[in-house]
């Protein structure tokens, strides 16, 4: 069919010319496909210009997510029967290397734009009004799991210590050297909890004893475990994974 129509339009030309035109067209086709394959085969991600473009887009996405974030929109909550068992362990180290924090000597340090910087012991933290949630933890890797966490509403805690809630960021440092930070709007969200219990038990080491900040409106890596200190600041604190290239806002 193709040949016949070609010959009609190129009537009077030699069959050799027709074939050569066809060959050239086919070559062009093949080359463009090759270019596509090359694009995916040899990774242009490492190119400096591409890197700065991608980082710029990630910062733009931080802003877009900030606008999209509705402080009153609640993450869906689930019945006890929906809880994932066993709940997955995930960290940059193995389960046997989980950091053990001594609860007796533990004190939560507060820094930055906070009025009452007195460190908090575990009994003091356990004495605050507690609430529970059963929500879906979504990992940036794609998997998700439903768990039950209990603790104090983070906005209540921030009010109690006199944190400057007009500041932009809250940063966290953890016993396993991990660090991350979140935006103030998310910190004040009603479902953002400073948790001490998992599945109605004292938070086990693998899930972040003595304390994990549970944020159902953010991806798992934005939910720090083994929190040792926190600070309020207007200086952008970043985070371990965020500084490596993961999106900072990472909201759900």
């Amino acid at each position: 069919m193709k040949k016949r129509t070609m010959e009609t339009s190129l009537a009077g030309h030699s069959p050799g010319l027709v074939r050569s035109i066809e060959r050239r067209l086919f070559l062009k086709q093949g080359l463009s496909l090759g270019a596509l394959a090359l694009l995916s085969g040899c990774d242009p991600t490492d190119d400096e210009g591409v890197q700065s473009l991608l980082k710029g887009m990630s910062r733009w996405n931080d802003r877009a997510q900030g606008w999209l974030f509705n402080p009153n929109k609640l993450a869906p909550e689930y019945p006890e029967s929906a809880i994932t068992k066993p709940f997955p362990f995930n960290a940059f180290y193995s389960e046997e290397e989980v950091t053990l924090v001594d609860g007796k000597d533990y004190k939560l340090e507060l820094e930055g734009l906070i009025r009452e910087k007195k460190p908090w012991t575990l009994p003091e933290l356990y004495g605050l009004p507690q609430t529970s949630q059963i929500t879906r933890h979504i990992c940036v890797e794609g998997w998700s799991a439903i768990g039950k966490w209990s603790g104090v509403r983070f906005s209540d805690f921030l009010a109690r210590v006199g944190a400057d809630t007009s500041a932009k960021y809250i940063g966290f440092t953890c016993a396993d050297d991990y660090y991350t930070s979140i935006d103030m709007a998310t910190a004040l969200h009603p479902q953002t909890l400073l948790t001490f219990r998992f599945a109605d038990q004292v938070l086990p080491p693998k899930y972040g004893f003595p304390m994990k900040l549970r944020i159902p409106t953010k991806l798992g890596f934005k939910n720090p475990k083994h929190i040792m200190s926190m600070f309020v600041s207007n200086e952008f604190p970043g985070g371990y994974w965020e500084d490596q290239g993961y999106n900072w806002f990472s909201g759900s």
Binding site: A91, F92, Y93, E95, E96, E97, V98, T99, V140, F221
Partner: peptide
């Protein structure tokens, strides 16, 4: 001790997980 936490972290080993 296979699953018991608290072993010192082997700092020179590659990271675990899929984020690395």
């Amino acid at each position: 001790a296979a699953d018991a936490p608290g072993k010192p972290m082997k700092m020179d080993e590659p990271m675990h997980g899929e984020m690395k």
